[in-house]
Write a protein that binds this DNA or RNA. Sequence first.
DNA 1: CATGAGGCATACGTACTACATATGGCAATT
DNA 2: AATTGCCATATGTAGTACGTATGCCTCATG
Lengths: 310, 310
Amino acid sequence: MDIRHLRYFVTVAEHGSITRAAEALGMEQPPLSQQIRQMERDLGVVLFERQTRGVRLTDIGQALLPRARTILDMQAQFLSTAQELARGEAGHIRMGLAGAVPLLPVIPLTIRRFREMAPNVTLSLEESNTPALCAALHEHAIDLAIIRPPAPDPARLSVFHLLDEPTVIALPRGHRLTTRPVISLDMVADEPLIIFARELGPGFHDAILSAYQSAGVTPVIGQQAPQIAGTVPLVAAGLGVSVVPRSLSQIHTGGVTFHGISAPAPRATLAVAIRAGQNMPLVTRLVHVLRSACKAWEKRLAAESFFETE
Amino acid sequence: MDIRHLRYFVTVAEHGSITRAAEALGMEQPPLSQQIRQMERDLGVVLFERQTRGVRLTDIGQALLPRARTILDMQAQFLSTAQELARGEAGHIRMGLAGAVPLLPVIPLTIRRFREMAPNVTLSLEESNTPALCAALHEHAIDLAIIRPPAPDPARLSVFHLLDEPTVIALPRGHRLTTRPVISLDMVADEPLIIFARELGPGFHDAILSAYQSAGVTPVIGQQAPQIAGTVPLVAAGLGVSVVPRSLSQIHTGGVTFHGISAPAPRATLAVAIRAGQNMPLVTRLVHVLRSACKAWEKRLAAESFFETE
DNA sequence: CATGAGGCATACGTACTACATATGGCAATT
DNA sequence: AATTGCCATATGTAGTACGTATGCCTCATG
């Protein structure tokens, strides 16, 4: 028995007549009679009671009819779901976020907008560090990650630039420089630099140290934080200063003030990474949405700083 | 797409290899490759990512796999349910009961035993009068009825005798005869006879009147009750006497006493009726169970009355 | 580097089967 | 009695699912 037989069964039951069901199905009466009989033989069950005027469901047929309808409905759902998946209108995305990424408003706002665009899509979010996210991508544990480039193994990944975020210096309350809105790195070169472990985000880590070097100073490395955002409380505790993405200034934890960095300032880069072979339309769509949203965000940011510096 | 494709899809997904899935399915590799490809063409979706070592589900395939399994499970359920229905192990029976039948313990006990024998069977019960039950049978509104014969239209029904129940006389409290355990009909011939409307059960109605005639008297017809069991409250209200199945003496409503009837006594006959064409195994089984249970009940009753009269 | 093995895709022939056409049988209606 | 409506049966045909043979690619091995 296959789905065609179920369709025939339901149609005949609905029309109460093999002849009329046949024309509804776009076929002739004899083959439909045959198929019904064959289905009855296969099941070992009499579905219809043949009468002089059409056919009539037996009690067994009556009991089986709703089940047949259910299977047909599920098959139709299967087909439409396949279409939706193909068009990227449904499915599930497991998404990974590098440290402190959710604090940058453009990211959660874009994710939210994407969920509104594709309501049949379910998303699961996970926050981790860049190397772990890339490993998770390779292991198919996640489908998409927002990382701080470069990826450790860019060969089998596709990485697309999202944005360059300015960085700020975090100073403890009462620091001698808290009155100045903008600070240069050489002014804090002798204060311990609280920075996250390099393996949590090699790219951003190196960008910070390079900026120090460009400023002609060498930082004193203080305590290492287990996460990128984890440096802020250490600064608040007075263990030193830190350089963090500007979005971290959202954290209004007491005891810390944030100050702009005059050139040469490091920048915190974000990128979206997917597996190179990834062709799931849903993921492609999300990547596209993220890229265009971040492009607009960078443009707005440039305009703002233009007015600021003028 | 039909069920075979779903089975192929699931099997290949489970084995991660077309070749191994093919041998699990008892077929060769090339046709299975073809069928998978055709399914992908039909759906417009790539289900598997072909690798050098077997195949691997795409994300879309991953999302569709559980749905395919569900459809296969439902199809298996459909087949097994059909078998159960054919063997009378599952299904639904709509049962009609004539007036006061549930009061005869053998009936509810037998129904209960049947439900224990066939736990996948659901039963719906309905109490009505004999002519209405026969009409309901004809209209396929119920599948089986316990009636008080004869059926009004026995031609298209199969009616099987169940039992002959003795009848008793119901007397109002304080009646002059309440001290006598057994009464003959001629002793109450001048009291108004409370009886149910003849159309509610012509057979039983006529049996009562015939018994009066055999006793050489003519009853004075009193108020008509809308149900067979409805006569008892009227007797309690002092409107007359009534002849009812002995099982009604279960009703311990105050104000009424029940007394045996000496010959010639009417008997309340019960029978089970099904549509003549009815071949639903479940119904046949229930009819069989009812008949054998009532046969045993009659035998026990005969033994009891034997000891009583001895 | 060459060779072999494992696995999927392609090509082609075959057998099955679902369908159409033609016709028969049966009951109800006129 | 004739007719009509509807299901069943008989037979031919086309489409298709499957088997066999083979090719191509990648990875492992001498």
